[in-house]
Amino acid sequence: MILKHLSKRHFVSTGDIPTFPDHCLFLMKSQSPVDFPGYFTAFSMVAMLKGWGKFNINGSRVTLDENSFLVVNRGSTLSFTLGKSGGYVVILCFNTTLADLVARKIFFRKESTGFPASAPGDFSLVEHVHYENASLKQHLPALIALGNSCASFHALKADMIVRSILEYIIHENYSAIQVSSKLKVVKTSTRIDLYKRLAITKNWMDSNHADPIKLDHLADISMLNAEHFLRLFKQAYGKTPYQYLKSVRLSHAKELLRTTDLPVSAVCHEVGFESISSFSILFKQCTGQSPTQFRGKI
């Protein structure tokens, strides 16, 4: 991996899609406003380590902060602006050849599922803001440290981290292809657009599962009407948004019961359930045991 300071000269749009013979981590720290012009991107991950920025990806505007990151497909156009207090932007451009090789290796391993040959290198389905998986973003400071390091095998260790990020995104893309193929739409562009709306909303539910969540709010996030959102979500994920939310809350509850000493009532409220009795009934329905029994058997 090569560490570089991001400057406009690296990304002057020449009309060509850039290729990277090695992973490149571009950093830009600013304490004043920045207006970065649009350029054609390589397959990359974009994040804000400090502050927030407004990014424009193929004409769609998204805001990134310290709790989110963006995956960018090869050949997309990206520009961004940082507000008055600046920020710390990180763009990790993946080694073009390696990304393709890893993707093909993973896809070919699952060849029997019959995905189109062009699918491995196309990441348009996951080209959106990701809120969950803080661990993925936590790798970035380690990468920056290794990029300037004198540690033994520092380049090798940096490459190992980038490779694990890359594999995560490729698997995410693989699963996105599977999920989106369940949407009953004909046009590919519509399928991609609808999938992204659903994925962003599902991602948002993962991050905000502990808050009261209403269907109308989810529909707003997906920018679809409530009925349409409900129908599409079930088509794609095989369950309603409410069923999905319950499963997320239950899985967090199990984790808290396993790893903390919090009383069951506190666990119930911590993960977003309002009533202890309905939480206990649901928990027993899904796991075959009460929360107390579950904790007792660990």
Binding site: I2, P21, D22, S152, F153, A155
Partner: peptide
């Protein structure tokens, strides 16, 4: 042995092995 990564692998790996 490509120009971009040649030194990274040669220097990085040999330096790592020397310590170990």
């Amino acid at each position: 042995t490509d120009e971009t990564t040649m030194l990274k692998h040669y220097v990085g790996d040999s330096r790592g092995w020397i310590f170990y």
